[in-house]
Computed example of a mutant assay.
Amino acid sequence: MPLLDLGIAGAGLLGRLLAWRLARAGHRVSVFDPAPGPQPRFDGQGAAAFSAAGMLSPLAELDNAGPDIATLGWRSISLWRDIVAALPDPPAFGQLGSLLLAHRNDFATAQRVLARLAAVPGATASPLSAQQLADMEPALQPPGHAWLLPGEAQIEPVKAMFSLYHHAPGVQWHWGCRVGTLHDGALQIDGAESGWRRFDTVFDVRGLGGRPTLPLRGVRGETVWLHAPGHGLLRPVRLLHPRHRVYLVPRPGDIVLLGATEIESEDRSPMSLRSAVELMAAAHSVMPALAESRILRLDRNLRPALPDNRPHIDVTPQRVAVNGLFRHGWLLAPALVEDALAAWARLRADAALPGPEIER
């Protein structure tokens, strides 16, 4: 199969997944990104993937997403398992299910969430008694109501981003280069290497940088990174809260990550006292051991979303665009990349252009 010269605009999660897959197939790959380098930035300005919790939760996302998102998510979990196995220096990955918790006063909210799950064939939430929860997660204090969401998974985002970057063979990474305009087979670079560059195909995965071509908005996410030696938490936990869907996610290195699912704001400023207090108080209410943890980082970032909060794929033989992953970036990215590359290969074949070789 002929090998191609490919350009990727954006070095976030989608960009690194694409670069890794296409380079492994032997293609010449160049990636352009305005960031100064591959490392994370925790100032609200870098790739949102670094700030994410890494929860792979098809069932929990049925709270306000359709069953098609869950279907993509289940496929992505399988793909993540294969990707992690193929990386020489893999990120932490686990599939022990996740927990949904609710205080007694929030049972009505829990019932609404469970009703959405019950409406989808095959979606199950298994109720847990206080003793069952204690046996499963001794670090948690039973809040009143608990359910296991079986099959859900988690991945360590920062390590995954570095592993994809370091093990994409032969990729040319161009940092400090913002892509301003894309056409079929060409992209315009601003900054360190300004000018037009031509490729057999270009991939547009710039996130919010895709404006104004797409009607994107930024959805703010906020996280608290806690160092809690010996915390003992094994599974991601979602706590139903009057204002937020608060989550707790165990990370390697005795870290517990706290976050809220979404805030409709494009504010990139540091976290407010109100947000920090609400997140930490909610987490402490179900995990008392966090009282003696130490705050490592208060982080925030914006995730790209379209008006319907659904992902968007647009493919021609010489241009592929994927955007609008909303809060589902880590949940959906591998499946969307697989679908976009499959559609691209078909279109190039129909147009009698050299067909790409793509390795999973």
Results as ranks from 00 to 15, higher is better:
residue 1 M to C: 06
residue 7 G to V: 06
residue 9 A to K: 07
residue 16 R to G: 08
residue 21 R to A: 09
residue 26 G to Y: 09
residue 47 A to S: 13
residue 50 F to W: 07
residue 52 A to M: 02
residue 53 A to P: 07
residue 62 L to I: 03
residue 65 A to K: 07
residue 74 W to R: 09
residue 78 S to Y: 09
residue 80 W to N: 09
residue 86 A to E: 05
residue 88 P to V: 01
residue 90 P to M: 02
residue 91 P to G: 02
residue 98 S to V: 03
residue 108 A to I: 09
residue 113 V to G: 13
residue 117 L to G: 09
residue 118 A to Q: 02
residue 122 G to E: 03
residue 129 S to I: 07
residue 134 A to V: 06
residue 140 L to W: 11
residue 140 L to N: 02
residue 141 Q to V: 14
residue 142 P to N: 07
residue 147 W to S: 11
residue 153 A to E: 06
residue 156 E to F: 15
residue 165 Y to N: 15
residue 178 R to V: 03
residue 193 E to W: 13
residue 204 D to V: 14
residue 204 D to A: 08
residue 206 R to V: 01
residue 209 G to F: 05
residue 216 L to N: 08
residue 222 E to A: 13
residue 227 H to Y: 15
residue 228 A to Y: 10
residue 232 G to M: 06
residue 234 L to P: 09
residue 235 R to N: 08
residue 237 V to H: 07
residue 249 V to E: 00
residue 253 G to C: 11
residue 254 D to T: 01
residue 263 I to E: 12
residue 265 S to M: 00
residue 268 R to A: 14
residue 273 L to M: 11
residue 283 A to I: 01
residue 293 S to P: 06
residue 297 R to C: 13
residue 298 L to W: 01
residue 299 D to V: 15
residue 301 N to Q: 11
residue 303 R to T: 01
residue 304 P to E: 12
residue 310 R to Y: 08
residue 311 P to N: 12
residue 312 H to N: 01
residue 316 T to I: 11
residue 325 L to K: 00
residue 328 H to C: 14
residue 328 H to N: 11
residue 332 L to A: 09
residue 333 A to Q: 12
residue 338 E to C: 06
residue 340 A to E: 08
residue 341 L to W: 02
residue 343 A to P: 12
residue 345 A to D: 11
residue 347 L to Q: 06
residue 352 A to M: 15
